[in-house]
């Protein structure tokens, strides 16, 4: 019988096999597999004692969709030089190709129900991405809700479908913390972040300037708000984890990492300040 790590390796190999396309591999960077999202998919399915074959049939198409979304997130608005055009063209097509594969795998398995669930998840994710990107937000809570949906909708769909009690809050809060940390780090480093753009618009609605033009105090205030939500989500994550009947060591240590990650961030901000 395979342990969690072996199961992870097994499905990762399957995913890598599916995403390999000689021309894409030669011309654009290899797609990144979100290890945390993969880890939690495998973990909750393992918790449900799903067979390795069934695990593969859920995880591979779900991760292909996640890879497709992440690939399309790389498509930017700026373009300089013709080589970049080809790169952008193939990035768009790579994302479409990976999402086509999700459909093909599930169609070949006659799994129409999961095709529907994941399609609904993708709709939610893109709808919420547009809300955040266009800053059509009516409050910080809405922004946080959008981020939760963007990060965890695919997992949530499968969790609900398979009645994986308790995992929804663990995974949603874990992925939210990770996302907020990432946006925070990017904002502190380069004063750019789509999430902080949204925060700025909500906190300083009359402020017409860009994130870079905010004063040091204003920037710190936004980071402070972000930190508040990270701390709150951590509390929720701990509570959710404690509600799980059995938490294996790997899940425990994965959660520990994200719970400790932010403290380093605070220290570095204080030092910069």
């Amino acid at each position: 019988m395979l342990n969690l790590q072996q199961k992870l390796e097994y499905v990762r190999e399957k995913i890598e096999g599916k995403i390999h396309h000689p021309f894409l591999t030669k011309n654009i960077e290899a797609p990144i597999i979100d290890e945390d999202k993969l880890f939690f998919l495998v973990s909750f399915l393992d918790d449900l004692n799903v067979s390795i074959e069934d695990m593969e049939s859920y995880v591979v198409p779900t991760m292909l969709l996640q890879i497709a979304l992440d690939t399309h997130d790389k498509v930017t608005n700026d373009l300089s030089g013709d080589s970049n055009l080809k790169h952008r063209q193939l990035t768009v097509l790579a994302g479409v190709y990976y999402s086509g594969l999700y459909y093909k795998i599930l169609a070949d398995q006659d799994n129409i129900e999961v095709i529907r669930l994941l399609a609904e998840g993708i709709e939610t994710i893109n709808d919420q991405k547009i809300i955040v990107y266009q800053q059509e937000l009516d409050g910080i809570e809405k922004l946080i809700e959008c981020l939760k949906n963007i990060e965890a909708s695919l997992h949530k769909k499968l969790i609900k479908h398979l009645h994986a009690k308790g995992w929804d809050d663990v995974i949603t809060n874990f992925l939210l913390i990770k996302r907020l940390n990432k946006e925070r780090e990017q904002f502190v480093k380069s004063h750019t972040s789509v999430v902080f753009e949204g925060l700025k618009k909500l906190v300083f609605p009359k402020h017409e300037h860009t994130l870079k033009e905010l004063s040091h105090e204003q920037r710190n205030h936004l980071v402070f708000i972000c930190d508040k939500y990270i701390s709150f989500s951590k509390e929720l994550l701990i509570k959710a984890k404690n509600k799980l009947p059995l938490v294996n060591e790997a899940v425990e240590s994965k959660i520990e990492v994200v719970l400790n990650q932010h403290q380093i961030g605070v220290k570095s901000l204080v030092e910069e300040g």
């Binding site: 497709a68 979304l69 399309h72 997130d73 498509v75 930017t76 608005n77 952008r88 768009v92 994302g95 479409v96 999402s99 459909y103 095709i115 529907r116 399609a119 609904e120 998840g121 993708i122 709709e123 893109n126 709808d127 991405k129 547009i130 990107y133 266009q134």
Partner: peptide, 17 residues
Amino acid sequence: NRFAMYSGDYIFAKSLE
């Protein structure tokens, strides 16, 4: 472009649903 990618992906998912 970014908006177009999100819209295209949304429409594709809607069609499969």
